[in-house]
Design a binder for these strands. Structure first.
Lengths: 328, 328
DNA sequence: TCGTCGCGTGGAAACGTTTCCATGACGGAA
DNA sequence: TTCCGTCATGGAAACGTTTCCACGCGACGA
């Protein structure tokens, strides 16, 4: 394995000169520049990242901790974040927490040990010990999509109020009165914001405020299906259902089909916070609020990089758009 | 930032003893063990990964290069691989190639610089310079899902023959004769294997061998939709369509709906290689061959770890299962 | 002609670990 | 008592970089 020492020797220059050429850091004579580059190419030299990180006290790596990469929202976000980071010369270390606080802490310990330069975090719950320790070290951290109680960090996520507003308007436009709402986890900031905005906006948009139409889920398919079944079991007859996120909507679909059969289910309009491409092919028709995960991912990277430069990072709430598929 | 030197000083022991305790490597007296651990806890000591990697010449990190993490097959695979690796004390560095050979090479260079201990790779095309360079250094490498011409590496992927066989049997059982086939990229091993098995098996399963029903796509939604349109434009009337992967099937759905309208489209049975959960909610009904991405991810990690231990790694072809949704 | 300046250069030091080697203490056998 | 082996220990060396510092050399102005 060739080291920079080998490169320097082969080029007939000193260690320092080789390093300077390879990093383009300082002035070097054209002749040594040329010879060093030639030597490096001949030897297939690849700088030893860890050694370089050790000496420079930075790694050019950002950590990205999401709850579950299988969630399309996060995989799109991760993809965009990686592209954006790469464009700025940073690598992204991706890890899953599986909605598990212990695993999240474990990952943070690994990140800390790797000495990542910055962190993008979709929190699982309250602040954990490892997070606190990273904060102490002044590692730049931004939050994705969920907030953490008591911790004031730049936030990059969806504009829930605006998105729910679009849904309320759509439901009113379509003349729905009896609308079921399957919400998210009541302890998560996203769940709270969406529920508050929706429930509070019902009256102004001609939607029944009967709480028999409302159940909380857990942002997972299973829990949402169960919640939907509880609503149906009360004997109410919604003409539309609003699911608080993508997985919730899938659970709603499953429950409707299971309890009513696919024909009766097709008569119900389903509205989703979070859009999936395949909604276009589903029956019943699904109207959705599209959540620009790519924009969030890019903005989050830019936020971390700003913090790294010592500038303040402004929180960003990305606006959503309504994909209306009710007209079919 | 506390170093191991600080820990040793605070514990009143030498550098070596501190290191030995923290790594549990050699015999240490209970008293110094206790004091070192206490000191480390008090200082919030976290070992410096890069320094440790420098000295040990290994990083306990595996690289995973996929074409696009937004593809559910890969996100499931990546998730499983990360869990498996973590269970064995390894971290996974994930990167996307975006189906772009140059970007893939770029990522490999980064991986090489990070000195990953092993690599799991879903190749974009033929062997690239950086891959060759990694091979030279004897970095353990396994292939995911696609093979590389002329390079003999352990392979972990779907059993395409077996999967296509399930599809052929299903089509025969359902009595389809006029079946359209939208294939994948003809240069990729997966595309070739699936096409060869399907085309060769048609006659034996009572399926028309008229090549007017066959078009190649590119494993992407856009290209598949275009291919499907070309078939329909020939004036043939398939009663079923077989899409060579998940994205292809989505393109097929789009084309059918666009050209025939959703009612006529619903009368056509669509069969997919790759299953998505939402297929259950789609119209027309979609029967699919389920591809166990998690099993592939886990097996690939185990393969790399075997290579790292100096053992041979046996290629694995994971069997698929048929999810029959045609009975609705 | 001489001092000064700037530029390119070589090499030592440092980054934080792990591991090797030598040392001292201690206990048991002779 | 003496000798040897065992065991825990401290510290130096090494891993591959980058960066700082000092030096030599040519050009330039006085």
């Amino acid at each position: 394995m060739a080291t920079i020492k080998d490169v320097a020797a082969r080029a007939g220059v000193g260690l320092g000169t080789a390093s300077r050429v390879l990093n383009g850091s300082a002035q070097t004579s054209p002749s040594s520049r040329e010879r060093v580059l030639a030597a490096a190419a001949e030897l297939g030299y690849v700088a030893h990242g860890p050694a370089r990180a050790l000496r420079r006290t930075r790694t050019d790596a950002l950590g990205l901790l999401v709850s579950d990469i299988r969630n399309p929202f996060f995989s799109e976000l991760a993809h965009a974040a990686e592209q954006e980071a790469r464009a700025h010369g940073y690598a992204v270390l991706l890890a899953n927490a599986n909605e598990d606080e212990r695993q999240a802490d474990d990952v943070l310990r690994t990140f800390a040990s790797q000495r990542i330069d910055g962190l993008m975090l979709s929190p699982q719950g309250p602040a954990t010990p490892q997070l606190a320790s990273l904060l102490e070290r002044d590692v730049p951290i931004v939050l994705l999509n969920r907030r953490i109680e008591g911790v004031d960090l730049p936030f990059f996520g969806t504009d829930n109020e605006q998105g729910v507003g679009l849904v309320l308007e759509h439901l009113q436009r379509r003349g729905h009165r009896d609308v079921a709402y399957v919400g998210g986890t009541p302890t998560m900031s996203t769940g709270v914001e969406r529920a508050r905005t929706y429930l509070g906006g019902r009256a102004a948009h001609g939607i029944s405020t009967d709480d028999a139409f409302v159940e909380a889920g857990d942002f997972q398919t299973e829990g949402a299906a169960a919640a939907m079944l509880r609503i149906l079991d009360r004997g109410v007859q919604p003409t539309a259902v609003f699911g608080a996120n993508g997985a919730t909507t899938v659970g709603v679909l499953r429950a409707l089909r299971e309890r009513l059969g696919s024909d009766a289910a097709a008569a119900i309009e389903v509205v989703s916070f979070d859009d999936f491409d395949w909604f276009a092919y589903a029956s019943p028709a699904i109207t959705a609020v599209r959540n620009d995960a790519s924009a969030i991912g890019r903005a989050a990277v830019q936020g971390v990089l700003a913090l790294l430069r010592g500038e303040p990072a402004e929180s960003v709430r990305v606006a959503t758009t309504l994909i209306d598929r009710s007209g079919r």
